[in-house]
């Protein structure tokens, strides 16, 4: 896009699941870039493919799912690798997963093992990727433990020496999510994928976790892909936003443009339909008519056209390509250009 090389570059990614009932195209031609140190927000409703895209980046797609097309170019110290070409269980992928690209999952309760202390689980990750801390030298357990205590302190857990010997079920929701963030940071990742990290926690705890992530991002300059369905969280966290619907990118652009000058009818409708803390109360909200289509019944053409207020005849025939729309955005919509996505 410009002089700075992207850290991660996803091009025309397609992931499908061959189920007995039919083929589900969960991700259907998604493209976006993540710049070094950038917070990229990915918004979308359930079934839009945001989580599957992230699992594809980490090569964590379970059978019968398969990456059928596209590239996931990730820039490392020794050049660019295409993660889509790597075997999920290969040494190269294992070297990247959890170390250079780390994940903060939605449900920290499910992500930690209940039979090991949280400290042990983080120590294990550090030992596995110890070269991220000390290149070319073996690391001892006590050293890894010291690093873990330091990480706990970094993410604002009080009494870290005691807390690392706790089990995940002994921690409150907020502490558990902080411990999860400490684990994600344990191998100094270049890219952090946060998959709905605050959806399962209360609003005051969410504010604490968001403040922590913002602070860590500034301190370490880690790039973050922040996935959420909460437009408020996106507005406060991201600098660049990707809006997804049914496995495709509808629109992307700088956060201010997305919120104040949206180009795609889906983005516009989504923004109008959320109740705000300032608007008029007890009046009908503008809605997006219809329902999210069932994954087996993908509409032909633009996936949003059956619910789109501005749909035209050609929207049901051809899939619009993601194209630049002045001044700053990209949109896949025939209102703004004529380009058809051939696939």
């Amino acid at each position: 896009m410009n002089a700075i090389e992207p850290l991660l570059s996803v091009r025309d990614l397609r992931v499908s699941f061959a189920l007995d009932e039919g083929l589900v195209r969960a991700v259907d031609g998604t493209s976006f870039d993540v710049m070094p140190g950038q917070v990229l927000g990915v918004v979308g409703e359930s079934g839009c493919g945001k989580s599957v895209t992230m699992r594809a980046i980490l090569q964590l797609i379970d059978r019968p799912g398969r990456i059928t097309n596209g590239e996931i170019r990730f820039r490392r110290d020794d050049g660019v690798v295409d993660l889509a070409r790597l075997e999920p269980r290969s040494a190269a992928m294992r070297d990247i997963r959890g170390a250079e690209i780390a994940l903060i999952p939605q449900e920290p309760m499910a992500a930690f093992s209940p039979v090991h202390t949280v400290g042990d689980q983080i120590v294990e990750a550090i030992l596995l990727h110890s070269h991220r801390w000390q290149p070319g030298k073996r690391m001892g357990r006590s050293e890894a433990r010291d690093i873990t205590v330091g990480l706990f302190r970094d993410v604002g857990i009080s009494m870290p020496e005691q807390r690392i010997d706790a089990y995940s079920w002994q921690l409150s929701g907020g502490l558990r999510q902080r411990a999860m963030i400490a684990m994600a940071l344990s191998c100094k990742p270049r890219l952090l994928i946060a998959d709905e990290p605050t959806t399962a926690i209360d609003v005051t705890t969410q504010a604490q976790v968001l403040a922590l992530l913002r602070d860590l991002q500034e301190r370490y300059n880690t790039a973050i892909i922040f996935i959420t369905h909460d437009l408020g969280v996106i507005a406060q966290m991201a600098s660049y936003v990707v809006v997804m619907y049914l496995g495709r990118v509808m629109e992307e652009g700088p956060v201010d443009d997305i919120f104040h000058a949206p180009k795609h009818p889906y983005t516009k409708a989504l923004l109008r339909s959320i109740p705000s803390l300032y608007g008029q109360t007890r009046v009908a909200l503008p809605v997006i008519s219809g329902a999210l289509p069932h994954p087996f019944n993908r509409p032909p053409g633009c996936p949003f056209h059956p619910r789109c207020p501005d749909a035209m005849p050609r929207c049901s025939d051809a899939v619009p390509k993601l194209m630049p729309v002045p001044p700053n955005q990209f949109a896949s919509c025939f209102l703004h250009h004529e380009e058809v996505d051939p696939a």
């Binding site: 409150s172 907020g174 502490l175 209360d202 609003v203 005051t204 705890t205 969410q206 504010a207 604490q208 968001l210 403040a211 909460d230 437009l231 408020g232 969280v233 996106i234 507005a235 406060q236 966290m237 956060v255 201010d256 919120f259 104040h260 923004l271 959320i274 705000s276 803390l277």
Partner: peptide, 25 residues
Amino acid sequence: AALMRAVPAADPRVKSGDGVLGGEV
């Protein structure tokens, strides 16, 4: 008041999340 301040505003020009409520319930 703290609960209201903790809600992230769906507008990047409105900075919210200041004065985060510390501690736990």
